[in-house]
């Protein structure tokens, strides 16, 4: 009987969270608006969840983390916590994208378009068709003005001939509904830690682990290079 545990961290948006899976069953999850101290909030939540589950961190068998895209600072904090735990406790680590985390909680047998907030004028998008042999589109950041072109090019006939579920924030809903009038919409604020846990658990079961030294967030956007700061030292 499978009894291994996996701890998952979600920190890509304004609501962060922790989830714990044991043997393929959800032991518990915490979602919280973290305010300014994200790492502190995640650690308090992790500590509480482990205590309630009568576990200690070294007893966790694997760690999963949402790699993004999302808040740059949130990504870095979540990834650093997960990779440092995996590193020092010598435990397996899996990374899942924010798109995968959303898809993990979606109904089966339907094509998905996951739309997450990027900048004020753009969305992070990934299309996951449920057609045999079809691959997911590469994750992309698309400006509002280019959404129509991206949808036509990426979704093709799927936008009208297949059942399509759009998972996204209120802004994504507002921008995409006129372009996809036949699609179903599911509103979310941020990816759910339970989705990170399920997607992570499947990766863990499949042996798709990553070395903590090589795990990096999925930023999609390059760093803003202005203005430069003087060196310290």
């Amino acid at each position: 009987m499978e009894t291994r545990t996996l701890l998952a961290l979600e920190s890509t948006g304004p609501i962060s969270g922790v989830a714990l899976i044991q043997g393929g069953a959800l032991l518990g999850a915490i979602r919280l608006q973290h305010g300014l101290n994200l790492s502190g909030s995640l650690l308090h939540a992790t500590s509480w969840l482990l205590q309630r589950s009568q576990l200690t961190l070294p007893q966790v068998d694997a760690f999963a983390v949402d790699l993004g895209p999302g808040s740059f600072t949130g990504l870095k904090i979540g990834v650093m916590l997960a990779k440092t735990w995996a590193h020092v406790l010598e435990k397996p680590l899996v990374g899942v994208s924010a798109f995968e985390a959303c898809a993990a909680l979606a109904p089966a047998g339907i094509s998905l378009l996951v739309a997450l907030p990027a900048r004020r004028d753009a969305l992070y998008l990934q299309f996951m068709p449920k057609v045999a042999q079809a691959e997911s589109s590469p994750p992309a950041m698309v400006r509002q003005a280019h959404l129509s072109d991206w949808i036509e090019h990426t979704l093709g006939e799927a936008r009208i001939t297949h059942q399509l579920l759009v998972i996204g924030t209120a802004q994504a809903h507002e921008w995409l509904q006129p372009l996809l009038p036949d699609a179903l919409f599911q509103r979310i604020e941020t990816p759910d830690p339970v989705g990170v846990a399920w997607a992570g658990w499947q990766r863990f079961q499949a042996g798709e682990m990553v070395h903590p030294f090589s795990l990096t967030p999925l930023y999609i956007q390059p760093p803003s290079i202005t203005p430069p700061k003087p060196s310290r030292g």
Partner: peptide, 21 residues
């Protein structure tokens, strides 16, 4: 950072994530 003539904060933070462990 030499290519930009000074420290770019976001680039510095990303490097820390890759290198610290």
């Amino acid at each position: 950072h030499a290519r930009w003539g000074g420290v770019v904060p976001e680039a510095a933070a990303r490097q820390h994530v890759e290198r610290l462990n």
